[in-house]
Every structure is written in structure tokens, then in C-alpha cells.
């Protein structure tokens, strides 16, 4: 891997997010709108839920949408011949994947900050300090790896950007309904146990409760790290072998 090449690719990736309205919306505005909407809904006592319980799920929910962004981005680049053009340069697939992963990690940091700050006025009152916040950021960064990996898998099986958008919901919906802000019941729990978002949400809830010795934190980190690494390796392998044509 060459750091100079990673740096120029990273700059390109970040410019894409800032300058392409669709990516900017999904990456930064969508979590903001989502938090405000949910804030208004859950701030109403009639609803029976509070922002305190919903907020950890919102962090995960925003991160899950990276699947769609990565899938769209890669299929578009492939359709427009940009991946071929990049492949002709001395850039290696390692340089390219590293820039893609780092750019998404940076975006996740922004997403966490946006959701955190916007949730505060709606009653979100985390009982955490610097270490807790650091763990929350770290958890979401590791979780974003699985989303990048699933995005690559989606791009591999999609023939166009439009198809990628649709197919990405195969991975988004289960994680959304079985592991974010929607409470998991005894019926859905056996399935939710396989969702990285379920562990991310529970670990975040534990972090924000202020109890950093809670077993969910170590369980969440372990599960998400292992699963994310497996998914990203599979995603990179599949995309390199079948998706880059």
C-alpha cells in the first residue's frame, strides 16, 4: 500500500460525498433529519418511549445506510469505466479499499457527532464521559466496516446503480428492524442475535448508561469486530474477483 495514493484517493472520496447531493444527503443530512423526526415523535410521552432508549439505535441506523452508499458508489464507478481507469494506474486494490474504508470511517465520526448533538435537545442525556464517548466512536467505526463489506457484496451482485439501491435493502432492512430503534421481542430475538446492528445498539446503550463494565460492551465489540472483519474480507474478495468487470 502507498500512503500518497491512499491520500489522493481519500481526498477524491471525501469530495464526492461533499459535492454529490445524493451522497451528502445519505451520509450527513439523513441522520440529521432522522434524529429530528424521531426526536419529535419520541419526545411525546403518549408514545411510551423516550429518546434515551431510541438514540443508540439511531446511531446504528445511520451507519447501516453506508451499505447503500458504498453499493451505489462502486456500481456507478464500474458503469462509468472509472474503476477500469483507476486499475490502469499503479494504484493497487489495497490502496483503493483503504481509501474507501477510511472515508467511510470519517463519515461515521461525523454521523455520530450529528446524531449525538441533535438528540440532546430531545431528552437524550447520556451518562458518559470521555472514555465512553471514545468507545462509542470506536464501536461505530468498527461497525462501519461491516457496512462497507456488505456494500461491496451488494455492488458485486448488482448490474447497475439502480439495482444496487434496491438490493442493498436485503442487508439494510433486517438490521434496521432487528437491531436498531425497534425493540426486539422474544420472537425476533433469535434472528436479531445474528445482526451486527443488534450488538452495536446494545453496546451503545450500555456505554451511554455510564456502566462501562457492562458485559454488553465487550460482547458487542467482540462480535462486531469479528463479524465486520469477516464481512469486509468476503466483500473485498468477491468484488475483486467478480464485481470489478
Amino acid at each position: 500500500m502507498n500512503f500518497k495514493r491512499i491520500r489522493v484517493l481519500l481526498k477524491m472520496e471525501l469530495l464526492k460525498i461533499v459535492r454529490e447531493p445524493a451522497f451528502l444527503f445519505l451520509m450527513l443530512l439523513f441522520p440529521a433529519v432522522l434524529t429530528i423526526m424521531f426526536g419529535f415523535i419520541f419526545a411525546d410521552p403518549e408514545f411510551g418511549m423516550s429518546m434515551e432508549t431510541v438514540a443508540p439505535g439511531l446511531f446504528g441506523y445511520a451507519c447501516i445506510f453506508i451499505i447503500m452508499i458504498v453499493a451505489q458508489s462502486f456500481t456507478e464507478m464500474r458503469d462509468q469505466g472509472l474503476l477500469k481507469r483507476l486499475n490502469i494506474s499503479p494504484m493497487t486494490s489495497g490502496d483503493f479499499m483503504a481509501s474507501e474504508i477510511i472515508s467511510n470511517m470519517i463519515m461515521v465520526i461525523f454521523q455520530v457527532i450529528i446524531v449525538y448533538l441533535l438528540a440532546l435537545p430531545f431528552g437524550f442525556n447520556p451518562n458518559t464521559k470521555v472514555l465512553g464517548m471514545f468507545l462509542a466512536f470506536l464501536l461505530m467505526i468498527v461497525f462501519s466496516l461491516s457496512s462497507v463489506g456488505l456494500g461491496l457484496i451488494t455492488a458485486t451482485i448488482s448490474k447497475s446503480s439502480g439495482t444496487a439501491t434496491g438490493l442493498s435493502f436485503i442487508f439494510i432492512l433486517p438490521q434496521m428492524f432487528l437491531g436498531t430503534f425497534i425493540p426486539v421481542t422474544a420472537t425476533t430475538k433469535p434472528i436479531a442475535m445474528f445482526m451486527p446492528s443488534y450488538y452495536a445498539t446494545n453496546a451503545l446503550s450500555a456505554i451511554f448508561s455510564g456502566d462501562l463494565t457492562n458485559s454488553w460492551i465487550i460482547t458487542g465489540f467482540t462480535f462486531i469486530t469479528i463479524v465486520s472483519l469477516i464481512i469486509i474480507i468476503i466483500g473485498m474478495f468477491l468484488f475483486k474477483k467478480f464485481g470489478n468487470k
Binding site: 502507498n2 500518497k4 495514493r5 491520500r7 489522493v8 484517493l9 481526498k11 477524491m12 469530495l15 464526492k16 459535492r19 454529490e20 483507476l86 494506474s89 499503479p90 494504484m91
Partner: peptide, 16 residues
């Protein structure tokens, strides 16, 4: 989404 100059600079950078 890149300007012409940025596009050229990107490939210059990829060639180190």
C-alpha cells in the same frame, strides 16, 4: 464531481 484540474491531479497523485 471533480474539476478538470482536480481530475488531472488525482491521476498525477496515483502515479506518485
Amino acid at each position: 464531481f471533480l474539476t478538470g484540474k482536480e481530475m488531472i491531479e488525482l491521476f498525477g497523485g496515483l502515479h506518485s
